[in-house]
Every structure is written in structure tokens, then in C-alpha cells.
Amino acid sequence: MTATNSINSGDVKQVAKILLVEDNRVSRLVAERLLKRWCYGAESAVNGQQAVSMAVVSQYALILMNLGLPDISGREAAAMIRQLSPLHKHTPIIAFSANLQALRVSGGPFTDSLQVPYMPEQLRGLLQLHISVQPGAESYHQLQAQQNNRLEIRLDVISGKDPVFRQQLIALYTKSCRELLSDLELGLLDNANYLDQVRHKHRSSLRLLELYSLEAALDNLQEVLGAAPSDQAILTFRKQAVAQQATAVIEGLSLQAA
């Protein structure tokens, strides 16, 4: 068995441990660095058999599974984990692959999916959505503070620190996010064509304020709606992700308006 790569998440009070199953060394190192940056603990497996062996004896908050592994497929490995490990009957398992068609038929043992290459915020959004145990409280609040600081900087840059224009921007972005939440509640975003219009309508403004997490959540929802047929469980999770990100933006903007 190949030695497991571990990440030391530092002295945080509560760490969600993730099993990363990835045979590509570069991709594995990139993902490990991201997980460390976000204060998650992680252990890595380089093939399906190793992943199954690790999951049988260790408990993880979430499993990231590459579909294209060198020994057995990611789907087979995930199914074996579900079958052989009582610890992981209900653990979120996220499939990832560059093959969009493979992801569209992921389902089965998988909770959700992620197409590669991905934006870091797409991965982070999925982790926050599916893991009930977040990083240590202190570290989590530090990350939130960093996000709010970036939001403050972008508002200052765009408005030129004009207080009136700044308040107008805050009101405009808050209104847009509330409209997204309303569309979700009314089920309007279940329509792929309507969602596509919404994405294009908001894309430039989201990028202007560097709200990449919300943009990624909308893109992920569009991806699921484009699948035939749509996986209802994944669709529900993706809609929750949009709601989560839109709510986070509204909360951040409210702090800036105070």
C-alpha cells in the first residue's frame, strides 16, 4: 500500500477530516494545499483499493473520489466503501472528473459531483455544503473575516470611496441576491433557460465584486439542469449551495452598510 499523504491542519479545536482519492500527483498536491488553506484535515489515497482500505478503518467527514483511477473505477471504489464500511453509509462522497458525461451518470454511491478543472471556490462551496463539521470555529471566523475584507476593498475600489455611490452599490447587490433567493423559492431557477439568462445577467457584476463563490454555485446548478435526466438529490444540493452563497453575500453587504 502506498503511504498516505497527510495534512497537518494546525491547532484548531474541531477539524473535518477528508479522504482525497486522486492518482495524479500534481492534482493531488493542489487539492491538498487548498484543503490545508481552508483548515480541513486530509488524508490521500492514490487508487481505489487503498481508498477502500482506509475508509474501512477510519472515519471521514467527506470523501473526494476521482472517477478515473488506475486499478478500479471511482464508482466501484465508492460502492465498496458504502458496502464494506459501516462508518460511511451516509458520508458525502463527491465524484470528480474531467469527463462531463461520466459525471452526469454519477448518481449511485455518490452524493454530488464536480467537473475538473474547477475553481477553488467551487470545491470550497461543496465542502461547506456537505460537511456538517466545519473547520475550527476560530479559523472559520477568520476565513469569513477575510472574505468580508475583500468585499470591503472591492466596494472601495469600484465606488472610489464615494459614500453615496458605495451605498448605492450595496443596495444594488443586495437587491440582486434577494431576487436570486426569491427565484429559488418560486422554483424559477429549475428552468435551465431561465437560469442561463440569470447567470448571464449577473455574471459581469459578480466578477466585478469578485463574488466567485456565488457565480460558481450558479454554474454548478446549470450543469445539473443540463443533465438528462437531472439527479434530484444533486439538484437539491446545488440549489442549497446557491441559497447559501447568496445569503452569505447579503450578510457581508449588510456589514458594509452598517
Score class of each variant (00 low, 15 high):
A228K: 11
K175S: 12
H200E: 13
R203Q: 13
Q232Y: 08
L188H: 08
A243I: 06
H202K: 06
L195D: 09
I170V: 12
Q245K: 11
S176G: 05
L181M: 15
R203H: 15
Q167W: 13
L172Y: 02
T236A: 14
R203D: 07
H200G: 10
L188D: 05
Q222P: 05
N191Y: 05
V242Y: 07
S182D: 15
Q197K: 01
S182E: 15
R207P: 02
K175R: 13
G226Q: 13
Q244M: 04
P163S: 05
E210K: 08
K161H: 06
A227Q: 11
S204G: 06
V242D: 08
D231K: 08
D183H: 07
L209V: 11
L169D: 06
A228I: 03
Q167R: 15
P163E: 05
C177R: 00
S204T: 15
T174N: 06
Q240M: 08
T236P: 08
L184F: 14
Q222R: 10
Q244C: 03
R238S: 11
S182Y: 15
V157G: 01
Q245C: 11
A171F: 13
T174G: 13
P229T: 01
D231S: 05
L221Y: 02
L211N: 02
A243Y: 08
L211D: 02
L181S: 14
D196A: 15
E185G: 14
A233K: 12
R238W: 09
K175W: 08
A241E: 12
L169H: 10
Q244L: 10
L235E: 04
Q167P: 09
L180N: 09
K239T: 03
E179F: 03
F237Y: 07
K201N: 03
Q240Y: 10
G160K: 08
L225R: 06
Y194S: 03
Q222Y: 04
H202E: 03
A233C: 00
L221T: 05
A228Q: 11
A243H: 11
A192V: 01
V198N: 01
A228H: 06
E210L: 00
Q245E: 14
S213Y: 07
S176I: 02
Q222M: 04
Q197W: 00
A241L: 14
